[in-house]
Computed example of a mutant assay.
Amino acid sequence: MEKITSKNNTIVKDTKKLFTSSKARYENHLFALEGARLCFDVLNSVYEPDTLLFTEDIYARYQDEIDALSIKAKRTFLIDGQVSEKLSETKSPQGVFLTVKMKDNGEMFACGKIVALDNVQDPANVGAIIRSAEALGIDGVVTYNCCDVFNSKAVRASMGSILRMNIIDSDNLEQTLIHMKSQGFKVYSTVPSSSAVKITDADFTGNAVSVIGNEANGVEENIKAVSDDLITIPMLGRAESLNAGVAAAITMWEMLR
């Protein structure tokens, strides 16, 4: 097994770019993971590991898991502490990193309870929403003009749910929703308006998709126009709106209860 000790090694530089650059991720059709939990989650996902890098210290703690990843990965490298610090996106690196092949978009959902993200830009929000979606039992997530779901902050916020949830990226959310309506879905857009239907009164029986809007501007007008209903989360306090991640979690809970 080759050992990498130089922070200027090409493999190290290329891996670091996958953490920091969306352009690099999509040009190479790869994304990067850091830490034992996220890297080992790949073993129980449909994703294919590409390059594994790890320190002697992490190998001593997780020999079985790293051996299992080594068998599946195309390339495996032992790295030292300096290289680990170079690659890390955290203050206390665990010493294991993995590049993973992206999946192509699957077929659009034919049924179920779906959440759609319209221009959600904060990676922490996107990751938290995907994590909540998996935890609550949502069938899939549609993203449109959002931050890159493979952004390292989004991946960490999802706690690995990005590897397990069915996520489809739409290049035209309005047309995607129109198609879903033709397949029997009801479309709901969340808005901070007292004139909208209270979320507790909305009928989520059958196939349904709820749209969560941009943190500052909400759901786009053309998306509202194709929605069956505008729904709102009643608030008794003085705040005018909720964080997108919180609003999404409440909406998904109501969709499934």
Score class of each variant (00 low, 15 high):
L87P: 08
L87E: 11
L87T: 04
S88N: 06
E89S: 05
E89C: 13
T90F: 01
T90C: 11
K91N: 09
K91R: 12
S92L: 08
P93F: 04
Q94C: 02
G95A: 12
G95D: 14
V96Q: 03
V96S: 03
F97Q: 05
V100L: 02
V100D: 04
K101Y: 13
K101A: 10
M102N: 07
M102F: 08
K103W: 01
D104H: 04
N105K: 06
E107H: 12
M108A: 03
F109M: 06
F109I: 04
C111R: 14
K113I: 02
I114R: 00
I114N: 10
I114D: 05
A116T: 08
D118R: 05
D118M: 06
N119W: 05
V120H: 04
V120M: 01
Q121G: 01
N125K: 02
N125F: 03
A128V: 07
I129M: 02
I129R: 04
I130H: 01
R131H: 02
R131M: 05
S132V: 07
E134C: 08
E134T: 10
L136M: 11
G140V: 03
G140Q: 00
G140M: 01
G140W: 00
G140N: 02
V142M: 06
Y144I: 03
D148M: 14
V149W: 00
V149R: 01
V149A: 04
N151G: 02
N151A: 03
S152I: 12
K153G: 00
K153Q: 07
K153E: 05
A154R: 08
A154Q: 11
V155A: 03
A157S: 15
S158G: 12
M159V: 09
I162P: 00
I162E: 08
R164M: 07
M165F: 07
M165R: 10
N166V: 00
D169M: 10
D171Y: 13
D171A: 13
N172H: 13
T176R: 03
I178M: 11
I178H: 00
I178C: 06
H179G: 10
M180L: 14
K181N: 10
K181V: 13
S182Q: 15
S182M: 12
S182F: 05
Q183I: 03
Q183H: 09
Q183S: 13
Q183K: 13
G184D: 06
F185Y: 15
F185W: 06
K186T: 09
K186N: 14
V187Y: 05
V187L: 11
V187F: 05
Y188M: 12
V191D: 08
P192W: 02
P192E: 11
S193A: 09
S194A: 12
S195K: 08
S195Q: 11
K198I: 04
T200G: 14
A202E: 12
A202C: 10
F204K: 02
F204N: 09
T205A: 09
T205E: 15
N207F: 03
A208L: 02
A208I: 01
V209M: 05
S210A: 15
V211N: 01
I212H: 05
